[in-house]
């Protein structure tokens, strides 16, 4: 391994890294928003919107991000809807993630025991109080493990952004390999940057997950 090569490439990788995490986290923020709204719509069985959300969730959970991105980035402009590669990456990740987050939050809401609802009602709580002080806090805790898994999954999915010419880590690595054949160094740096991006999330995620489990079940 040639460390001079690594030093030379470092600024390029850092730039790509920043872009990847920027788009990644914007996409994740979007996915959380979409997920929460979708889960509420499903939980409260809001007519019409429920059906729309169901179709959306199934469509995006059962297709690869790469295909979704190609459709949005190359397909939609033919209908006159053009968006930048960066926006496309964030929106694509947001839509994919939204469908996963929706499922996670919905099952969190569904996992709160019926007897919790009953005992809250027996105390004279109104539907609204029941939801905000009893159901929601428990549902959030219950969905933590799934949400953590989604976060990691979505951050990993950012690796397909290069397919729509976003200058992300993968793009940079592939480009440099193609230009200078420093394969070992390029791949090494690629791995290192993905470790920097994901290891903290994975470790923190495990801790938060354990805490959440303990909070709900005490073990």
């Amino acid at each position: 391994m040639d460390f001079n090569v690594i030093k030379d490439y470092l600024p390029l990788y850092i730039k790509a890294f920043m872009l990847t995490i920027k788009i990644g986290w914007i996409g994740i923020a979007l996915s959380l928003g979409i997920g929460v709204i979708s889960a509420f719509i499903l939980h409260f069985k809001i007519p019409f919107f429920s059906a729309v959300v169901k179709v959306y969730v199934e469509l995006f959970r059962n297709t690869p991000l790469l295909v979704q991105l190609f459709f949005v980035y190359f397909g939609l402009p033919k209908l006159g809807i053009s968006i930048s590669a960066e926006a496309c990456g964030a929106i694509g990740l947001g839509l994919l993630g939204g469908s996963y987050m929706a499922e996670s939050f919905r099952s969190g809401l569904g996992a709160v025991k019926l007897s919790q609802t009953e005992s809250a009602l027996a105390l004279g709580m109104k539907k609204r109080q029941l939801f905000t002080s009893v159901i929601l806090p428990q549902a959030i805790t219950l969905s933590v493990p799934a949400v953590v898994a989604n976060l990691i999954f979505l951050l990993k999915e950012t690796s397909v952004f290069s397919a729509i010419s976003l200058m992300d880590l993968m793009f940079t690595a592939k480009d440099l390999i193609g230009l200078y054949y420093n394969t070992t160094e390029c791949l090494f740096m690629l791995v290192i940057f993905y470790v920097i991006m994901l290891l903290p999330v994975s470790v923190l995620g495990s801790i938060v997950e354990k805490k959440a489990r303990f909070k709900m079940f005490g073990d």
Partner: peptide, 23 residues
């Protein structure tokens, strides 16, 4: 399991496809 948990499949693909030949 941790490697698989945090490494995108795309990165693994690159490592095997480009890296194996080289290394």
């Amino acid at each position: 399991l941790e490697i698989v948990r945090i490494m995108p499949q795309m990165v693994l693909l690159f490592i095997v496809y480009f890296g194996a030949t080289k290394v």
